[in-house]
């Protein structure tokens, strides 16, 4: 579903990704771990298309209608409409835009793209309430301004709500566990697990093993200095938890 080949990317002239390769298939969960500054967040931003990052070589092929297409040639919003989703490490506050208004605009943009009819305000509200319930969230969540004055945990849960509403095929969760207390971590993980199907795939970027005991990955990759240097199963994460990264990197 997603195939990254020899990806090189830089920001302000500094190369961060230095030939990264990764393949993700339908139904799989991948975890990408690595020390600070290894390029984890850069990878997620480049896949989503953040304008600050320059891709100097390589491809990010993504399956659209049974054909692989390089998403690097697509606009940010176009990638999202094709079912590519990034849960932000630091979700952005957008003052004055209500959560529900935003979600409806987003949902309808995707519907229109897929040739479906837009949902009107009332129907969408029902749909949204259903998702809120599904994720055990407070109903008043959706009436608030987008991420404004949300706690760290609320912001992360809001990302998962967006994921539930938009139902993406390929989700990248960037440090979704950072800044969460145990209860929030559980709630967020349960949300993600509920959204998992055999047709979608998830890439989790994380610093700690902690998240992986709630959302169990099929593969664990270690990213260092802009490349994946080791791949294993979930036991690799446990070993990193015990021994740190040094034994892999040296």
């Amino acid at each position: 579903m997603l195939q990254i080949k020899n990806l090189h990317a830089s920001i302000d002239g500094t190369e961060i990704l230095k030939g990264l390769n990764l393949e993700v298939k339908e139904g799989e969960i991948h975890a990408i771990m690595g020390p600070n500054g290894s390029g984890k967040s850069t990878l997620s931003k480049v896949i989503a298309g953040h304008p600050d990052y320059e891709v100097t070589s390589g491809t990010v092929d993504y399956e659209i209608n049974f054909k692989m297409k390089n998403v690097l040639d697509m606009e940010v919003d176009e990638r999202a409409r094709e079912g590519l989703f990034l849960a932000f490490q630091y979700p952005v506050e957008v003052p004055g835009v209500s959560n529900s208004e935003f979600l409806r605009a987003s949902y309808n943009a995707i519907c229109t793209h897929q040739g479906a009819e837009e949902m009107d305000v009332l129907d969408f509200d029902d749909y949204l309430q259903e998702k809120v319930k599904f994720l055990n969230m407070e109903p008043n969540f959706i009436g608030r301004q987008l991420n404004v004055d949300f706690s760290g945990g609320e912001k992360k849960r809001n990302e998962i709500l967006q994921m539930a509403v938009l139902n993406p095929r390929m989700s990248i969760l960037d440090e979704t566990d950072s800044g969460l207390d145990v209860d929030s971590l559980k709630a967020v993980s349960e949300g993600v697990n509920k959204l998992r199907t055999k047709d979608n795939a998830i890439v989790m970027i994380t610093h700690y093993q902690r998240l992986l005991s709630y959302i169990v990955p099929d593969y664990v990759h270690v990213l260092n200095n802009g490349k994946i240097v080791k791949t294993g199963d979930k036991s690799l994460a446990l070993e990193i938890e015990k021994r740190g990264y040094d034994w892999i990197l040296n």
């Binding site: 940010v76 932000f88 957008v94 208004e101 943009a109």
Partner: peptide, 19 residues
């Protein structure tokens, strides 16, 4: 803010005018 809305499928000009 624009990038964030775009990552949710909203076109750039629509995102700009929403904000």
């Amino acid at each position: 803010e624009i990038f964030y809305l775009q990552t949710r499928g909203i076109k750039r000009d629509v995102a700009e005018s929403m904000i």
